[in-house]
Computed example of a mutant assay.
Amino acid sequence: MMETYEFTVIATGLDPQDEAFEAKFYDAGCDDALVSFQKGHILVDFCREAESLEEAIGSAVDNCRTAGAVVERVEPDPLVSLSEIAARSDMSRAAMTNYFKGHRSEGFPAPRARVTTASPLWDWSDVSLWLYKHDKISKEIAIGAAVVSVANDILECDGRDFRTSLHERVREKVAAF
Rank of each mutant, 00 (worst) to 15 (best):
V71K: 01
L82I: 10
C64F: 05
D90Q: 11
E49N: 11
T117P: 03
V70F: 05
P78G: 14
V71Y: 02
H167K: 15
A95R: 15
R163Q: 12
T97V: 08
P76R: 07
K24D: 07
T97C: 05
S89T: 09
D135W: 06
S138Q: 08
K101Y: 08
S83M: 11
S149I: 02
Y5L: 03
F108G: 03
R93H: 12
V70T: 10
V44S: 04
P109E: 08
L82N: 08
E6R: 12
M2E: 13
R171V: 04
I141T: 08
E55W: 05
S59P: 00
P111H: 07
T164R: 15
D31H: 05
G58K: 02
R114L: 14
L131D: 08
S138D: 14
E106S: 07
V9H: 02
R65H: 00
W122K: 09
V150N: 02
P120T: 06
K39H: 11
T8D: 07
A69I: 07
G159L: 06
F46I: 06
E22I: 07
F100C: 12
E19D: 13
F108K: 07
V44T: 09
Q38W: 12
S165G: 15
D126C: 06
F46V: 01
G29H: 01
A56N: 13
L14K: 07
G29C: 00
I85P: 05
H41A: 06
P78L: 13
G13P: 04
E51C: 02
I57T: 03
G102V: 11
D153C: 04
D90A: 09
A175M: 08
S52Y: 11
A69R: 00
M96F: 07
A50D: 14
E51L: 09
P78M: 14
Q17E: 12
L34W: 03
A50Y: 05
A113Q: 15
R104K: 07
M91H: 14
N98H: 13
I141L: 10
H167D: 13
I137W: 04
T4Q: 13
I143P: 02
A67I: 07
T116F: 12
